[in-house]
């Protein structure tokens, strides 16, 4: 098989999955698909090492610190250099409140986009699931409504891996997160943006501290 043909099929698969919309589900009871243990509950402070790739180019490593309370549904996050200089700091309530944003993290829309990504990874969806079922590939999916017509799927693959898929109002998959066992407190999370933003963030757990204990 030539190199071009080898590339064609994986690229086609990615293209089709991004365009196909959320998969049709064969219904199963919500209790079996929508485990409350998909997200970590409680108040936590996480430290991750972040590796960014933007349009295939690697950016310098950063540290990401996230303070999350699932009870209060609050989220604070900061990006800093590995030496500890803060480049971006924001917190999320109904809207993103930006406390600090230095170049290149001061571009319009960056804060909202980042906070939506962080919220997707660390906070369980706000409302109850509206559907649950098995996807054609055998994975178990719990489906939630997000803001502005978005759909959020928490996915347990047939090989028992956790993923989160976010779709926009037109049904295009805009984010894919793959969570290793123990994430976000241990292991890695990989977030891929596929809405034209074209970036990939790899988050490696460094510290997880339960707050208030």
């Amino acid at each position: 098989m030539t190199g071009r043909r080898m590339l064609f099929w994986p690229l086609l698969a990615v293209f089709l999955s991004a365009c196909a919309g959320p998969p049709v589900l064969t219904p199963v009871p919500k209790e079996s698909a929508c485990s409350s243990r998909f997200f970590m509950e409680g108040d936590w402070q996480f430290l991750h090492r972040l590796s960014f790739a933007v349009s295939g180019r690697r950016a310098p490593s950063l540290l990401g610190v996230t303070v999350v309370s699932t009870h209060r549904r609050s989220l604070k996050t900061a990006l800093m250099t590995t030496e500890g200089v803060v480049l971006f700091e924001a917190e999320s309530g109904d809207t993103a409140l930006v406390r600090k944003s230095l170049p290149p993290f001061d571009r319009p829309g960056f804060a909202e986009g980042l906070m939506a990504d962080v919220r997707m990874l660390f906070l369980p969806p706000a409302g109850p699931p509206f559907a649950a079922g098995r996807a054609p590939d055998g994975s178990l999916v719990c489906r939630y409504r997000g803001p502005e017509g978005e759909i959020l799927d928490t996915v347990k693959t047939a090989s028992d891996r956790r993923q989160i898929h976010r779709y926009d109002a037109d049904g295009r998959r805009i984010r894919t997160a793959v969570l290793e066992k123990g994430a976000p407190a241990a292991g890695r999370m990989v977030l891929t943006a596929s809405d034209g933003a074209d970036y990939r963030i790899e988050m490696e757990a460094v510290e997880a501290v339960r707050v208030g204990e």
Partner: peptide, 15 residues
């Protein structure tokens, strides 16, 4: 020993 203090942190980050 480096301590990072921020208002948002529940505990300082220590390196």
């Amino acid at each position: 020993v480096q301590e990072k203090h921020m208002k948002m942190l529940a505990r300082p980050l220590v390196s």
